[in-house]
């Protein structure tokens, strides 16, 4: 019997993997991939709650849909910033993009 805890645990593991990728990668596109993994983990939790807690009015699925929309907007703007910074600096290494660092 697969319960809510199984899905939430899988979401936690997926979130941790995405967090590790976001914090450890040097290539900015690798960092974006880690962010996508974390958003997927959050979506998985929302849909699991919709199935197991409020199965009749599936509000969580609507929230997951809005999260998908925001993830699409995020990756579009993130890649545009990456392309712009690559054109100006000639590198995709996030360690070299420290122009906002004090």
């Amino acid at each position: 019997m697969i319960t809510l805890q199984h899905y939430l645990g899988l979401g936690a593991v997926l979130f941790a993997i995405g967090l590790f990728g976001t914090l450890s990668k040097r290539n900015v596109i690798g960092i974006l991939m880690g962010v996508e993994l974390m958003l997927n983990a959050a979506n998985l939790n929302l849909v699991a709650f919709a199935r197991f807690v409020t199965p009749l009015e599936i509000t969580g699925q609507a929230f997951a849909l809005f999260t998908i929309v925001i993830a699409a907007a995020e990756v579009a703007v993130g890649l545009a910033i990456a392309i712009l910074l690559f054109r100006r600096r000639g590198t995709v290494n996030a360690d070299d993009w420290n122009l906002l660092r004090w």
Binding site: A12, A16, I17, T22, L23, S24, N27, A94, D95
Partner: peptide, 20 residues
């Protein structure tokens, strides 16, 4: 080697494990 890990691998690993 287009997706290398930075100097923060150990710290990132610890943070991820603790979060999980």
């Amino acid at each position: 080697l287009s997706n290398p890990s930075g100097k923060t691998v150990l710290g990132a690993f610890v943070v991820a494990i603790v979060t999980m």
